[in-house]
Design a protein around this nucleic acid. Structure first.
Length: 313
DNA sequence: ATCCAGGCTCCTG
DNA sequence: CAGGAGCATGGA
């Protein structure tokens, strides 16, 4: 019998859990997350145990409510507060998004997205090591291939936990990746020499205690970016992406991103790719919400490239 | 084959 | 300090 503990969570309105799930269903970045039966499902590690986190919706956009459950043989009642805190981070349930309206009015181009995706918040990958490793893997290659690499990494070196017949993959922890070698371990799963070096260096820094991701999480944006950029293979794009995806920083945007250059160049009628400088200049108008801007444009790109059939799993 | 894809490093001028 | 070449890898 699977232990199960649950509690309610009330996000700030407006909140669109359905859009969050749509993002997760269609994003290649969601490798260890699952969407099934209208719920978000992922394994989380608490102390040395692995349990399942399940989040589903009970409310509406204007009266949002989430159900958070902890499940698994190893689950304990004391895990519930941890799971709640995690769910709040993943879905940014505490964000006060009123400020978006003023930004939308100041910039109608971004405003169109703000309107279309009202209630959607950037989704967090709650394991910062996984999020940063994913950022490295995703550098300069198409993301569906990046997702394939991440899946291979999880299959080969991660683990799994079974919850009531559902098998959830678990991303390998830093201590595990720290022991890998390029030729023997990562070359066979299509990592380039440089990417495997970067991932292993990150894992070793974290597991050796040289890089304290918990401490990075507490730093102001620019300092956190600088702290990550010390590592080999982590440039500005990677650090900014990591801040968005690992820590849910609402105002951090990887302005050098290829996808953003493309779609912003198009949406602002430039007739060419926008430059990083142009994106940063435009971003002044989105101050406070630049991470939302990046996320919304990526979501739009995702929708354009792979339109989702009306939901039904 | 050639170009591209959610960059980074290192080297020029 | 800005700009660009070279780097790796698989997919279209």
């Amino acid at each position: 019998m699977i232990a199960l503990y649950s509690a309610d969570l009330t996000p700030t309105a407006p909140f669109r859990f359905d859009l969050a799930l749509q993002y997760l269903r269609t994003s290649p970045s969601a490798v260890v997350e699952q969407v099934r039966d209208g719920a978000y499902l992922r394994a989380i590690r608490i102390e040395s145990r692995t349990v399942g986190l399940r989040v589903s919706s009970g409310g509406t956009a204007e009266q949002p409510r989430l159900l958070v459950e902890v499940l698994g043989e190893e689950a304990r009642a004391a895990d519930l507060p941890v799971a709640l805190a995690l769910a709040r981070r993943v879905f940014a349930t505490d964000a006060a998004v009123d400020g978006l309206d003023a930004v939308a009015e100041a910039d109608p181009v971004f405003g169109r997205l703000v309107h279309a995706y009202r209630g959607l918040r950037p989704i967090v990958i709650p394991d910062p090591f996984e999020a940063i490793a994913w950022a490295i893997i995703g550098q300069q290659i198409n993301i569906s291939f990046a997702a394939k690499m991440k899946r291979a990494l999880v299959d080969r070196f991660g683990s799994t936990v079974e919850l009531d017949g559902i098998i959830l993959p678990v991303f390998p922890p830093p201590a595990c990746v720290a022991l890998l070698e390029h030729e023997r371990d990562l070359l066979p799963i299509q990592f380039s020499r440089q990417k495997s070096r970067y991932c292993i260096a990150l894992a070793r820094a974290v597991s050796a205690g040289e890089l304290d991701l918990g401490a990075v999480a507490a730093l102001p944006d620019e300092e956190a970016i600088a702290a990550l950029m010390v590592l080999p293979g982590i440039g500005r794009w990677t650090a900014e992406y990591a801040l968005m995806r690992a820590f849910g920083r609402p105002d951090v945007m990887p302005a050098g991103d290829g996808g953003l250059k493309q779609i912003i160049g198009r949406d602002y009628g430039l007739g060419r790719l926008a430059t990083e400088a142009e994106i940063r200049a435009l971003g002044e108008k989105w101050a406070g919400w630049r991470g939302y801007a990046a996320f919304y444009w990526w979501f739009q790109l995702q929708e354009e490239r792979r339109p989702v059939p009306p939901s039904r799993d």
